[in-house]
Write a protein that binds this DNA or RNA. Structure first.
Length: 270
DNA sequence: ATGGTAGGCTCCCTA
């Protein structure tokens, strides 16, 4: 028997998945959404313009969608069972170049929270122009996340950060030593985000769950993976995280025509 | 030092 004054705890599930082309991934993505039915989904590498985003497929599954895309490369989206109160495309005060960041304010069960879907540049090779761009991008992201901390909200920054935070997140640390995704400046840039006060939610799972396996050389079959997809939670959000329901859905990576990344999933109690 | 696969799109780039 509940009273008017008793609040019922609700669980909110949020998933993040680099799908490596939303249109190529539709069969796998659609069946995965039907099976897991997460409340909010952050997608990266949609690889299409807004006009080609399959909005109807997701609305048929009960999702509102917000997409920020471009032709051929990059592209990020947020799907939500709850309506969007606010949508921000691109990191504010960053000169627009590539579609890699979208953020939404969402109200669920009478509570407001913020979710961002992020696709950090890969960087290609340490010392390259693309590597410099990656580090600049991470600094702009840090400044934005620092600013948002002052809002004191529940906030989740989900996506493909293209950084393995420690050697524990790499199948063969010796062969990846100071290579792209693992170099010290990249790791310092990632640590700078957690040092702001955000929690790397998957970092508490043991053993560290890999989220990406190269398509090449049978990496998945040999479990030669890296943990590069992350969910960073603000203090108010991390207080609500159900850590035993935090995971990577490795199974879907083994399906035919799947992405080279697996989805990461977190649950919050509201 | 290089190759291996996948996606989008053009005979190559990004990952």
């Amino acid at each position: 028997m509940t009273t008017l004054f008793q609040k019922q705890a609700k669980t909110l599930t949020i998933a993040s998945w680099n799908v490596n082309s939303v249109r190529a991934r539709l069969p796998v993505l659609e069946s995965w959404l039907r099976l897991h039915n997460p409340d909010v989904v952050c997608l990266q590498e949609t690889k299409c313009e807004d006009k080609n985003f399959p909005t109807e497929v997701f609305s048929d599954l009960g999702y509102n969608s917000a997409h920020f895309g471009q032709k051929t490369f990059n592209g990020v989206a947020i799907l939500s069972k709850f309506p969007f109160d606010e949508i921000v495309r691109d990191i504010p005060n960053l000169e627009h170049d590539q579609a890699r960041y979208i953020e939404a304010g969402i109200s669920a069960f009478g509570q407001y929270f913020r979710v961002a879907s992020i696709y950090v540049p890969n960087g290609q090779e340490v010392g390259s122009d693309k590597y410099d761009y990656k580090l600049k991008y991470l600094e702009a992201l840090r400044l934005h996340m620092q600013h948002l901390l002052s809002y004191d909200e529940m906030a989740l920054f989900c996506g493909d950060y293209n950084i393995a935070p420690t050697d524990n997140d790499v199948y063969d640390p010796a062969s990846w030593h100071e290579k792209i995704l693992c170099s010290t400046p990249e790791r310092k840039a990632f640590a700078a985000l957690t040092h702001l006060g955000y929690t790397d939610i998957l970092g508490f799972v043991a053993p560290p769950p890999y989220t990406w396996w190269d398509y090449r050389a049978g990496s998945f079959q040999k479990n030669q993976g890296l943990r590069i997809d992350h969910i960073l939670a603000s203090p108010k959000a991390s207080d609500r995280v159900l850590f035993n329901e935090t995971k990577v859905d490795k199974d879907v990576r083994g399906l035919e025509k799947s992405s080279d990344h697996a989805p990461v999933i977190v649950a919050l109690t509201l």
